[in-house]
């Protein structure tokens, strides 16, 4: 990443677009502490967060979903959400307590699953879940930590049209009171959800603005269609 100066306005849905290899996921990794910037600063909600670990950034209210679905293959659906809810507390250190004490998170976990339409599947293991439902679970996990900033890495990739529509509605519902950043290739999704579109290419921002404006920007068109001397 090079010279990326990005301000994310609060309470708005931002879309991060750009061709493969543009640095979208890298930017997510920088924002969530998985990568440390070699130079530059990261401010979260007005406070310096440069060099913090991923768990510290999560505790400050930043949730992310992963581009490649990243779940715990052996756990049941509800156990995922319970784990995510517990992460906000110090309950996880209680090695002297029976795991039955985890049930205190069950009610809230089921609420969250209902919100993403997975409640009927709460007791299944994720191993055999269809792809679209795994993505929905990713979203439930992100919501479980009550984020102020929600980073979604290709939330609709590989989804059926119906699932895409449901995800759009879901994101539209949960964006109230929080800032959302989407990495998305589906321009229909971007157009419907995002108030602000940021276009990345080769680690730099080449355009930013409303979807309707950005899509006709000559630099953006060139980035997507390719240049002869690129």
């Amino acid at each position: 990443m090079n010279n990326v100066d990005l301000r994310l306005e609060e309470g708005v849905v931002h879309a991060l677009v750009g061709p493969n290899g543009a640095g979208k996921t890298t930017l997510f990794n920088l924002l969530t502490g998985f990568f440390a910037p070699s130079s530059g600063r990261l401010l979260l909600f007005g406070e310096d967060a440069t060099g913090l670990r991923p768990d510290q950034i999560a505790k400050r209210g930043v949730a992310r979903s992963f581009q490649i679905t990243s779940l715990f293959e052996h756990l049941r659906v509800i156990e995922h959400v319970v784990l995510a809810l517990q992460a906000r507390t110090d309950h996880g250190y209680r090695f002297w307590q029976a795991d039955a004490s985890l049930r205190r998170f069950d009610a809230r976990a089921r609420e969250l699953l209902a919100e993403v339409g997975l409640e009927p599947l709460a007791d299944r293991t994720v191993q055999h879940l269809p792809y679209g439902q795994k993505r929905a679970l990713e979203l439930a996990l992100a919501l479980a930590i009550e984020p102020r900033l929600l980073l979604l890495d290709e939330p609709t990739a590989g989804m059926s049209a119906a699932d895409v529509q449901r995800t759009i509605e879901l994101v539209a519902r949960v964006r109230a009171g929080r800032t959302v950043v989407l990495v998305e290739h589906n321009m229909g999704v971007v157009g419907e959800l995002a108030a602000n579109v940021v276009v990345l290419q080769q680690g730099a921002i080449i355009a930013e603005g409303r979807y309707a404006d950005v899509r006709h920007d000559p630099a953006v068109v060139a980035a997507y269609l390719g240049q002869v001397d690129a």
Partner: peptide
């Protein structure tokens, strides 16, 4: 053990 990056993203100080 199963997915450390995921656990960290949830907020666990692994």
């Amino acid at each position: 053990r199963d997915n450390e990056a995921r656990a960290r993203a949830l907020g666990y100080d692994t």
